[in-house]
Structure formats: structure tokens, C-alpha cells
Design a protein around this nucleic acid. Sequence first.
RNA 1: GGCGCGAUGGUCAAGCGGUUAAGACACCACCCUUUCACGGUGGUAACACGAGUUCGAGUCUCGUUCGCGUCACCA
Length: 483
Amino acid sequence: MKIRTRYAPSPTGRMHVGNLRTALYAYLIAKHEDGDYILRIEDTDQEREMEGAVDIIYNTLRQTGLLWDEGPDIGGPCGPYVQSVRQKQGLYMEYAKKLIEKGEAYYCFCDEERLNSLKKTVNGEEIMVYDKHCLHLSKEEIEANLAAGKPFVIRQNNPMEGTTTFHDELYGDISVDNAELDDMVLIKSDGFPTYNFANVVDDHLMGITHVVRGCEYLSSTPKYNRLYEAFGWEIPKYIHCPTITNEEHKKLSKRSGHSSFQDLVDLGYLPEAILNYVALLGWCPDSEREIFTLPELVKEFDYLRIAKSPAVFDMAKLSWMNGEYFKAMDPAAFYEKAEPYIKAVISKPLDLKKIAEMVRTRIEKFPDIAEQIDFFEEVPEYDSELYVSRKQKTTKESSLKVLTDVLPMVEGAAAFDNDSLFELLKGYAEKEGVKVGFVMWPIRTALSGKAMTPAGATEIMSVLGKEESVSRIKAAVKKLSEE
RNA sequence: GGCGCGAUGGUCAAGCGGUUAAGACACCACCCUUUCACGGUGGUAACACGAGUUCGAGUCUCGUUCGCGUCACCA
């Protein structure tokens, strides 16, 4: 049978990296077996819905390449793919009523006040277990309440005795006492289904074979199974993915500043690197390889190798991986994305493409660019101690001499490309009987005012041009002479 | 608190009864080098604890501890 998985997000804001990974794994599971990947919007919570959030979902999936075969925008044989639209068709109510007929669900008219009286506080947490009060309402009472237009919800009727066992592909068989299963709400008083109910109904109607979701649903899965069984539907395979946490091993929250895909893009990471990194949080191939394109992941992915324990999201490793992507990137493609970051610091008419190439293999994320290249625009204020290098054996005095000697050579240079300049200065070093670094160090310092630069002295000169290079060396000579 | 799940270096992780317990990130050292990176080489660093099963346990079982999840008309 063809595998069908789905990604079923709620449009409530940015896409959390945990959700992105779930979306990825669902995609990989389907595509590894050449199955279908379905996008379904679960907008059953009227209050939490955020404008524009559906577009965020579309954009994220498109940017990462997780393209769906069926969905709200492209339709498909199981549409509509938006739960609020399905709700308007009366779909969920219809199925809820079927459950009532079977005695697997019942109307509940309890108001908030009564529900609150059922709450108790344990360890500072409010918990509530419904007492099945309305299960015992007579048919007449129910009819009367309904006729009076009294607000109601529909609850699942779970047994108090026995146990329910479900199977997860990763965790194996898990059994729980039915007494633990509360009578969860299926249809809310606003007529919308709860996530849990809509999920079961739609997954079945859409022929989903593998339900991929976060571990937080593990404890409600027995209730899902009771729903499937009540309907007489085939239970899908479950794959519960472990949590992604922050460095403190707590749930990655908005406050951390890097909890969503959008946050990460804003921080200067590439979508493909983010996806690659996230794929490896909780899963690994049976090789030692770490860099994968999406098609390669599809090929390699074996969901049975998904981990069971939570993983810490490590920005340092993401940064490393992003850097690897930069190194492997086509220069033109890199330039296109880096250009705005370069233009943010350089307004002079320099060869920006050349500068981009200097920086491409030395940064981990786009915002790193600025501090690497800002000196091209203007030499910053700097301490003349920078001229002192133990390794190159340079001092302020030696630097002054080198710069003074070299100035007329640079001024008179016939060609100003990197190789010519290098040969020229190397010749000087040989004549003086010193090492190349002894000469280059002060020049680079004079040109940049920085301890580190994305290129060597002659490369910098070739970008700066003769006029600017000469002027910077002159300024350095003046600075050193005045000490 | 009940229930469930989890536990290998700081982090991601391999391991699936017998290994010198991989690899990657981070960190450190050295090499390379027109600086810093990159790259190369090497290094520091782990099986939470206690019982059992077994000739033999990171691997299996149980308990303890710790962590996480869940107990909503949120998903």
C-alpha cells in the first residue's frame, strides 16, 4: 500500500523548528517509499489563529523544498484540506453524532463554573478530570437542553476499567489503564472539533497511513485508538518524534530567539542548512556522513533510526554546518544572497564580488560579513601595537621602515593585481633578507587597521586600488612617525 | 500527585551480550600560511546509580535517581 503522511500545522505564527522537523520527517517517510505527502491546515482554534500564518507555512515549506502533493492551494482527492472549511460542511458533527449513537460519546452541558469546581492543584499545576456527570443525563433531559439551545460539547465516553494498548513504531507497545483516559471533548461549544477529534477523522478520511507527530501526543494516543476502534477504522502507524530543547534542556520557546525557522533565517542561516541540521537532531544515517541535500535525505532516511530521547538544539553546530554550505556554494549564488549584507557596510565602488569571495569560506552566517569587510570602507581607529607581531618578528620601528621603503614601490607599480603585487613585495623581502610575512604584516595592518582580515595584504590592495592603498600606507607612515 | 517516556563526553550521536566505547560540533596543541580563518595532524572528555540474569553487560530485567511529556472547549 502506498504510504501517505501528512503535515498538519495550526496557523498560529512562525514555524517552530520542532514542527519543521516533524514536517521534514513526515515528508521523508512518505518520499522514501515514493508515497504522498499531504498538507492540511488545522485551524480549529478560532482564538489562536493568526493572520498571515498560513502563508508562513507555505513559504517555509517551499523554501525548504518540502513540497506537498495535496493541500489547500492545489487541492486533491480528499479535499478540502482546511479544517474550518470541513467544519462548515458539518463533517465533524456528523461523525461525532455517529459516536453518540454508538454510546461512545455523549452530550455535556456542564458550564465553566462546574468544570472549575472539578479542578485541583497538584504541584502548582491545575489538573482536571471530568467526572462523567452528563453521561448520566436522561434522553429527555438531553432533548430539553438541546431544544432550549443550551450550549454543549460532545465528549468521548471512555471506560473506567481495563487497559488500552497502542503501538508506536519507535517506542513499541505502550499500555495505559483506561482509568487514565479522561472523557476528552470532541466537539467544542462553538461547534468546532478539537484537534484530537478532527485529527482522527481527517487522518482516516485522507487515508493517512503513518501519523508523524511530536512526543507530546504520546499520552493521548490511547484515546485516539479508542476513537478509531469506535468507528471501526484501521489504526495508522504512529511515529512519535522526540522533543527539541534549548541548552537548558527546556522546551525551545519564542524567548530563546531561535525557536523558529524564520528566526534562524533572520539570523543569517540558509534554509537548506537549517533543514539539514534539523534532520540530524534525533536521527542519523547509518554512515558517518552529515551533509545532505533533501533528495539525499529522502534516499537515506530510515524512520526506525529516529531517536527516542530529546535533543538539544546546538547553535554552534548549526553555525558550523551553515559554514560548510557556504564553502560548497556556487560563488554567484553566494553573492546574490550576500550582496545586501555587503552593501550594508560598503558604499564605495569596489569589486563587491571579489570581496564576497574573500569572505565566503570564512564566515558561518551572513551577519558575520560586516565585521570582516568594514575596513574596506574606511580604516578604523586602531592601536599601533597592532604592528607588533611576535610571530612575524615585527615592531613599530621595523614596520615604519618597511612601509616607508615600500611606499614608492607601490606608487610606481605597473600592475595592481594580486600576483604582481605579491611578486613585487616578495622581491623587496628577498633583497632585504627578511621573510615575506615580515613585510606583509605591516602593510596589511596599514591597509586595514585590523588584526584579522579576510585576505592578505596584496589581495586587499588589489581590491582597494592604487590610489586608496597608497593613501592608507601614507597615513600609516604618518601615524607611526608621530609616535 | 497519577500515568507515560527517556538516560553514552559540554552538545549531536554510533553501538543493538565479548569493541582499545566510533564519528561530528565545541575546546586545546602542533603543522601549513602574505594576518585570521580554511585545511591537515594529534589531544582532553562519556556508558547516572544499585541489584540481578550471564562465562561475560553500555547493550537484557528490576529498583533508585534525575529529566521530559501529559492530566484544556490549545494544538
